[in-house]
Design a binder for these strands. Structure first.
Length: 364
DNA sequence: AATTTCCCCAACCGCGAAGTT
DNA sequence: TAACTTCGCGGTTGGGGAAAT
């Protein structure tokens, strides 16, 4: 039953692909398709293992790959999907035509994840960062607002729970309820079951945190591995995501949508703060960072409609072993300055406090 | 100009799932 | 049904270019 090596490693080349190898692989697949990856390299005259060939094809040579920078729309979609699916990169990629799971994964790890951390958002849970909040609770144990009262009334632990944890719970409730709502739309599961499941889950986490404050931050990875994070909300079927288009793509409309999608009692009791899931702010802001000079769509547009492998010129014109994204379409995420701007968009997103004397970057 | 540090991303690795014999 | 093969996924690495010193 054990896994056998994908190929005999002896004598097989590793590392970056040469242009000649790319040509061989493309020529072979053009003629024969890509049925058996194990035998393909031998038949194509390549000194590579099948796995390497498959990766090279799916991540770089495939004709329908869209290269270039991610648009705002794409990034927004990635964040939405990641909040529901977690690191299911292949599923996320399936929702982003022309993007590979590897590309999305890299982009998440190098851009989005860092940005969320800077914003004080946990990129795993899409809620506030527990490490920062835990520090906040230690340093400033005094706040007690209406939101906290709602939560404490619901769980009946007014005097036992650290107020900051209640505040944290409020933030999580907003964030997680968002996910519930998405699932509510995405699935046909009975909404009451869905909500009760998550509410119960959240209360368990809250109570656990309340009773074990010093280790709260340390518990986060454990929670993740135990599939209790919102990223791990179980989908009975990935096809359920196909309905996601019904979900408001622009979260500025979220409040209206929420009112329709959520039972009124939940809206009142569980949602003292309307969720704001717009990581970037308004479209008005968004337009300010569009770089029209990068809107060239000449070479790397998807060739889905072109069955004649029109990729050869565009792909092979770039250095094969170190591909450089040449361009892209749509609105672009362009460089670090825009990332800074994006940070500023999110000033209203955070529904929790990080003491201003704490340098967030110290925790990244 | 030289060196070091940082960052990005293509490619690799190991594992589990699915398929086949 | 066990043994084996193949595929695809997610995590990680390391080479190379850019930025900083």
């Amino acid at each position: 039953m054990g896994r056998s090596p994908c190929c005999d490693k002896n004598g097989l080349k590793k590392g970056p692909w040469m242009q000649e190898e790319d040509h061989k692989l493309i020529d072979y697949i053009k003629k024969h398709g890509y049925g058996n990856w194990r035998t393909l390299p031998k038949n194509a005259g390549l000194q590579r293992c099948g796995k390497s060939c498959r990766l090279r094809w799916t991540n770089y040579l495939r004709p329908d790959i869209k290269r270039g920078k991610f648009s705002f729309e794409e990034e927004e979609k990635i964040i939405q999907l990641h909040s529901m699916l977690g690191n299911k990169w292949s599923v996320i990629a399936a929702r982003l035509p022309g993007r590979t799971d590897n590309e999305i994964k890299n982009y998440w790890n190098t851009h989005i994840r860092k940005r969320l951390l800077r914003m004080g958002i946990d990129p795993v849970t899409h809620g506030p960062r527990l490490d920062l909040l835990n520090l906040s609770s230690i340093l400033r144990p005094s706040l007690y607002n209406q939101s906290q009262m709602n939560i404490s009334r619901l769980i009946g632990v007014n005097s036992l729970v650290n107020p900051e944890l209640l505040k944290l719970a409020t933030s999580f409730m907003s964030s997680k309820r968002q996910n519930q709502n998405q699932n509510f739309l995405l699935t046909n599961v009975d909404q009451n079951q869905l909500c009760s499941f998550h509410v119960q889950n959240q209360y368990q986490q809250l109570m656990q945190s309340s009773l074990d404050l010093p280790t709260q931050a340390q518990q986060l990875p454990a929670c993740t591995s135990l599939n209790t994070s919102p990223c791990s909300i179980p989908f009975s079927n990935e096809a359920q995501l196909m309905n996601m288009d019904q979900f408001p793509s622009n979260f500025s409309d979220f409040n209206d949508w929420l009112g329709n999608a959520l039972p009124s009692n939940l809206t009142e009791d569980y949602a003292p703060v309307p969720p704001n899931y717009d990581y970037y702010g308004s479209d008005q802001h968004r337009q300010t960072v569009i770089d029209p000079s990068l809107s060239d769509t000449s070479n790397f547009q998807s060739n889905n409609s072109n069955p004649s492998f029109g990729f050869a010129a565009s792909v092979l014109s770039s250095p094969s072993s170190s591909p450089t994204p040449l361009n892209s379409n749509s609105t672009h995420i362009n460089g670090s300055s825009n990332e800074d701007e994006r940070d500023s968009y999110c000033s209203n997103f955070l529904k929790f406090e990080i003491p201003h004397f704490l340098d967030v970057n110290d925790f990244i």
